[in-house]
């Protein structure tokens, strides 16, 4: 299999609020240390996505999956690491400049809330046409033809193209978001919880649409979600993220059936099942550790982990291979 996207040691740190300007000035005058507290949103993340593969990324809100996705799609700059798309190293160009890069079209994204990601002043046509105008330089008749083709491909009747987002249903908006992203035929499509805001009945249709499009166009998917039951249906492989780090990865079916990391186990257990009562489940206690300047020697899950021991406080478990899977836990 050929590797499409190679992500190596990617980290993204944000400066946290910290002391006010006055305190900082006083410290600077006193010659004290100038380091500000940093939020470690993404830390040392490495993985690959092969051509034609669907990789799932799962984790709770605040685990850094959105930041990681925005780094990969080059909406924000990395603090460290490299992102290679085929032979092209993407991390060298600043996010601001990358908007006009020739490879911009190769990574596209479908946003979580389709309603919010379509400009309320744009019709569905204009929303879908925007990337085609800018990245493919299509105009006039060719543009109209292309927009109609993609819309039809996404199950959006052409007569809806003149509508504004608020005149469309949730499912139709999701289709506009998908049509816009695939219009330029990207190699990699990042899907950021594309069905989170939809009813189950619509969710199924959209998921099936995504699966068909992938086959037709030959894209790779990075599917981000906090819902493992959805990822299980669509993904070849999943990555489980917890507080900025990948804690487990492997084939979707086996991770879902037999999770190795205690966090994954909790995640799987938390998925509501139709024919199973919720009484006997693994219960997570406590709150996640702070992502601000975390201790590099303590497992990020320590404190919330039902199995945590002194070993977890002494050394951060590294991600190690176990057959076709990888786990970052001392006990797996």
């Amino acid at each position: 299999m050929t590797i499409l996207l190679d992500v190596a040691d990617v980290s993204k740190l944000f400066t946290a609020g910290g002391p006010g300007a006055w305190t900082r000035l006083k410290r600077r005058l006193a010659g004290g240390p100038q380091t500000l507290p940093k939020v470690h949103a993404v830390e040392d993340v490495s993985f690959v996505i092969n051509k034609g593969e669907t990789v799932g990324l799962v984790g709770e809100s605040g685990c850094g999956k959105s930041t990681l996705v925005r780094a990969l799609t080059r909406l924000v700059d990395l603090s460290e690491g490299s992102i290679k798309l085929g032979d092209r190293e993407l991390s060298l160009k600043a996010a601001r400049v990358f908007a006009r890069d020739r490879d911009r079209a190769r990574i596209q994204m479908v946003f979580q809330d389709a309603g919010e990601s379509i400009n309320p002043r744009f019709t569905a046509f204009d929303a879908i046409a925007d990337p085609l105008r800018r990245l493919r330089k299509l105009h006039g008749k060719a543009l109209i033809e292309r927009v109609e083709t993609v819309a039809t491909q996404c199950g959006l009747p052409p007569q809806l193209l003149s509508r504004f987002p608020h005149q469309l249903s949730g499912g139709q908006r999701a289709r506009v978001g998908i049509a816009r992203a695939i219009a330029v035929q990207p190699d990699l499509l990042v899907l950021d919880e594309p069905t989170a805001a939809l009813d189950v009945s619509v969710q199924v249709v959209i998921l099936q649409l995504l699966q068909r499009l992938k086959k037709d166009i030959g894209m790779s998917y990075l599917f981000v979600s906090h819902d493992l039951s959805v990822l299980r249906l669509l993904c070849d492989r999943v990555l489980v993220m917890y507080l900025g780090k990948i804690v487990e990865s492997g084939p979707a079916a086996t991770v879902f059936e037999k999770p190795l990391h205690p966090y994954t186990q909790a995640l799987v257990a938390a998925v509501p099942r139709l024919h199973q009562s919720g009484a006997e489940r693994l219960r997570l206690i406590g709150e996640p550790r702070s992502p601000i300047d975390p201790d590099p020697n303590v497992c990020r899950f320590y404190g919330r982990c039902p199995r945590g021991t002194d070993a977890c406080k002494a050394a951060m478990p590294a991600l190690r291979a176990l057959g076709d899977r990888q786990v970052a836990c001392h006990f797996a």
């Binding site: 925005r70 799609t73 909406l75 996010a95 908007a99 006009r100 911009r104 079209a105 990574i107 596209q108 994204m109 946003f111 990601s117 379509i118 400009n119 929303a127 925007d130 990337p131 800018r134 990245l135 978001g177 816009r180 992203a181």
Partner: peptide, 8 residues
């Protein structure tokens, strides 16, 4: 963000 991805 979507506009950035669209090359604006």
């Amino acid at each position: 963000e979507a506009a950035r991805l669209s090359g604006n």
